[in-house]
Design a binder for these strands. Structure first.
Lengths: 254, 254
DNA sequence: CGGTTAATTGAATGTAGTCAATGGTTGTGG
DNA sequence: CCACAACCATTGACTACATTCAATTAACCG
């Protein structure tokens, strides 16, 4: 668990390198970016919708959610950010955010000034890596939207469990069939667009399918069965040709 | 209506300039990118989910939708692309798409090779402009997800009408209270995550609120009322400080 | 051990989906 | 100019999924 800014930035570099090869010099440049460490408790709002920022927020430990708020105060979480992920690289090119960030669990954050990040993009490879990171984010967002729009409760939750499993695993944060997901049922409900009551019932149904979420841990008995139930195809995670990632990689209709 | 590649690229430049000032030389560089014109009929699938590409697709006229497909064939449209918008700038840094593109109306497209686009990003300002464009896209996507997750049919459709109105207006494609939206009800339903039957009922309800969608035209009698019904706040469109854009710009909770 | 937060369950309601049929429009060819 | 076909829009009746309200049980923390 990262506790210093360079450690956290090293995690971020690991993530970038998944999709963009970087030289040691480029890695160092990112690792040595200035960062202010901040520990926040669960349910803490890091940034509110509509606020401006001059820094980006990197997760060092814990879990952060990007959300939007309705007039009546209900929230929709549209993205989860794991340790090593930069929640709002977006805000480097566009410092106004339409959305908010909240710490779902107690988290350690590293705030990196936009100015420093923008300076790092002198290097076109670093700029490309950042751009790619944003694209990845958008790809997950699009899938999230599709699930919210067209899937029922059970496959929707199942899909989220698949996604988080693969993401955790490829970052070394657990196995895809068993990992920590430090959120309450109410927060999960905000993510999948259900009420907490209905989410609870959905979890009960999933439990009968060998998928348990309890004690903030996800445990999946039969991965293949779950991916099928969820219609999970990991292409959208943009993890390149690492076929090992699993899920059914059926090809598109001719 | 753009019919040559440079004309279409000029529209794209107009869009970039909304958020990133460019010199004449930079504009020229983009306008003179190579592009292959292609006319496609309505309902034509331009690219299918999971396909690779080595070119990006710029809309010259018509309307294009980005969609994801479920196992049973149902679609969720997650983004609309207007003339002057590049549907998959994303695919420049990441040539695998998890999603598909379809022409919703008969459309003219310009295919620009990734190689040429990537070359243009030598210029860090152009790279920034592209990055910003991607971020904008992601911002709309996040809002779309939030609406799908947390709004009921009427405000959901209302929100889409508001969004499209503002986008049309700021690109000179109509007024926000009256514009062409060349889609069928079934396509609209795919966008808002409803069945076409229920969408039809929702449109009927909206008609009683002075919001008409018929003959592929949207006509809004009372803009302020609609933005309120939709909980529409245009910040997420990232149109900078052009306060004139309308909607209720209430600030975030303290 | 008491207080608080989170999870679970039941019953009633409501919104959206499904199935099936009817109108309406548009475009084409006789 | 009319007849027909194809597609799109509209409506009704019924079903199903998810929400709401309310209460209870379980887990966690000081």
């Amino acid at each position: 668990m990262a506790v210093t800014a360079p450690e956290a930035l090293a995690l971020f570099v690991d993530r970038l390198v998944l999709r963009t090869p970087l030289t040691e010099a480029q890695k160092d440049r990112i690792t040595s970016l200035p960062g202010r460490i901040s520990k926040v408790p669960a349910c803490h709002d890091i940034i509110l919708p509509g606020q401006h920022t001059d820094q980006s927020c990197l997760v060092a430990s814990g879990l952060v959610g990007r959300f939007d708020t309705m007039a009546d105060g209900r929230r929709q979480i549209v993205a989860f950010y794991l340790p090593g992920e930069m929640c709002d690289l977006h805000s480097v090119p566009v410092p106004t955010s339409g959305w908010g960030l909240e710490a779902l669990a107690g988290s350690t954050l590293v705030f990196v000034p936009h100015a420093a990040l923008r300076e790092a993009t002198d290097d076109p490879i670093i700029a490309l890596a950042f751009w790619r990171d944003t694209v990845t984010d958008a790809s997950l967002l699009a899938k999230w939207a599709a699930n919210l729009g067209r899937k029922q409760a059970i496959p929707r939750v199942a899909h989220l469990f698949c996604e988080m499993g693969v993401r955790m695993e490829c970052r070394g944060l657990g196995e895809r069939t068993e990992y920590d997901l430090p959120v309450t049922q109410a927060q999960l409900a905000d993510a999948v667009g259900l009420t907490s009551v209905h989410l609870n019932r959905t979890l009960k149904a999933l439990r009968e399918q060998g998928v348990a979420f309890s004690g903030r841990k996800v445990r999946i008995a039969d991965w293949a069965r779950l991916t099928q139930l969820a219609e999970f195809d990991p292409v959208y995670l943009l993890l390149a040709e690492r076929g090992a990632v699993g899920g059914d990689s059926r090809r598109s209709r001719g």
